[in-house]
Design a protein around this nucleic acid. Structure first.
Lengths: 253, 253
DNA sequence: TGGCAAACTTAACCTAGGGCAATCTCATTC
DNA sequence: GAATGAGATTGCCCTAGGTTAAGTTTGCCA
């Protein structure tokens, strides 16, 4: 499997590094805590595009830290429709909530070729026992996921298709920036238009129409796996996007 | 304010009791842990219907345990539209995520007259420092909220209006049962049709149409603040509802 | 007990986005 | 370098749900 992957070299520690980038935007992480984190994270393993990393309902003893690529949380409906409820970027734990819940309510699927690092729940339990502040930081990271879920709920409930797409493009721009994977111009987005549709509660055909709209309005272009942001201000305005829900600062404690 | 409320008697400890019911469905809570929980929860205070309990963005030092009534997490849009991203029932912490995030990304609003108990973040910090298992249980309860968010995302993205409404009615039936506030027949639901619309990403007019549909199909009736479930099986089938995402069991640890 | 105001209900019309099918593009493989 | 297949694109038609605008019912308070 790994032989077919575009980047066959396992990224050694970038997973933890990106996790640390993500956490340190929100709070201080001491050298000791960093050491502890590094010690509980297993070496990365390769995951083939489109494979199911974690299946809904199965009892779990570990959680997956995404090192490279993108993962989605997917719910399949009876009629074959699918909804993606979150897109994970490197540095995210895709299923840290399974540490408390012991299984998942939805599948975690690789949206492209990925590298992930497993973290045993036993080690996480030890962290919450002996490093309460670090434990609270991990708790925080699951609460960030929840905040993202709420933002998606708002999008699906109250934004029309162009605003919804623009909101997703803005969100990914910001989340990828945090882990150093986006610049002002845009970012690599290894999804298909079908995937986007499954994030946005739309059909692939309509996503295609709306992508063209954004392109023709000079806001953003999505082509061959790359999002080019032409007018971030305009995109933000269209989406009514604010970074508040991503908690990009350290608050007084 | 309290003078105008329908039930002027402060329910003394039912908030903690319902929280314990909720937690004990998911895991064991020792007598000591119960004692600790009771000790950190302040006496209930009355909240008038429609008032904002917690405003988005404000730095917070405490979280609200809902004792009686219902709360909603609301996002207001520029154009006056509003999306509710979760409905809280007694025994829920409405904003426990603010313990790690230090503020909210959305307002918490009283959907009717409520009683809530505040819990200081300092006390929660002490719990995570000295009672790691109890700390993990509180973490779990925020992860339950996230699972509910994901279920709503799926509803908004992939279910049509009747299925979406049916799904919400099923969810509340189950969540209220856990805290002893629903029976086989149904439950009190102190929301307006506008509130339902704001949960479901629909207009109030369409909610009204769909309520009639469910009534005429003999599935459920919502009238004068009460949901009567006439055919739970049928409602479940229509909604493609499963209780899996509510994690109603204790898993091996 | 009557007068409001909020909530609910219904109808007529309209539109954003879905459904379906054909075509196009391009990368991969033999 | 032809065959293949996944993804992207476009057009046409249609429906679920929105919009607007009346009513009607209900509960509250003077």
């Amino acid at each position: 499997m790994a032989a077919r992957m575009s980047d066959p070299l396992a990224p050694q520690s970038v997973g933890v590094d990106k996790l640390l980038l993500k956490l340190r935007v929100r709070d201080d992480v001491s050298a000791l805590e960093e050491e502890v984190l590094r010690s509980i994270i297993e070496p990365p393993v390769a995951i083939a595009s489109r494979s199911v990393v974690v299946k809904e309902g199965i009892p779990l003893e570990r959680s997956a830290l995404l090192v490279q690529g993108m993962l989605g949380r997917c719910k399949d409906m009876r009629d074959g429709q699918r909804q993606i409820t979150e897109v994970h970027v490197p540095g995210d734990f895709a299923d840290l909530h399974s540490f408390t819940l012991k299984r998942l309510d939805q599948d975690v699927v690789a949206l492209n070729d990925c590298w992930i690092s497993w973290v045993p729940h036993a080690a996480l339990r030890a962290v919450t026992d002996t490093q309460p502040h670090l434990g609270r930081l991990l708790w925080l990271s699951t609460n960030l996921d929840a905040a993202i879920h709420r933002a998606w709920t708002v999008s699906l409930g109250r934004r029309d298709a162009p605003a919804r797409l623009a909101h997703l493009l803005c969100e990914l721009q910001v989340r990828l920036s945090v882990v150093g994977m986006a610049d002002e111009d845009g970012y690599a987005l290894p999804l298909t238009q079908v995937d986007l549709a499954e994030c946005l509660g739309l059909t692939a055909v309509h996503v295609n129409r709306v992508l063209r709209q954004l392109r023709e309005q000079g806001l953003a272009t999505f082509r061959s796996g790359r999002v080019t942001i032409e007018d971030f201000k305009g995109l933000r305005r269209l989406a009514e996007f604010s970074t508040d829900y991503l908690f990009l600062d350290k608050r007084p404690r």
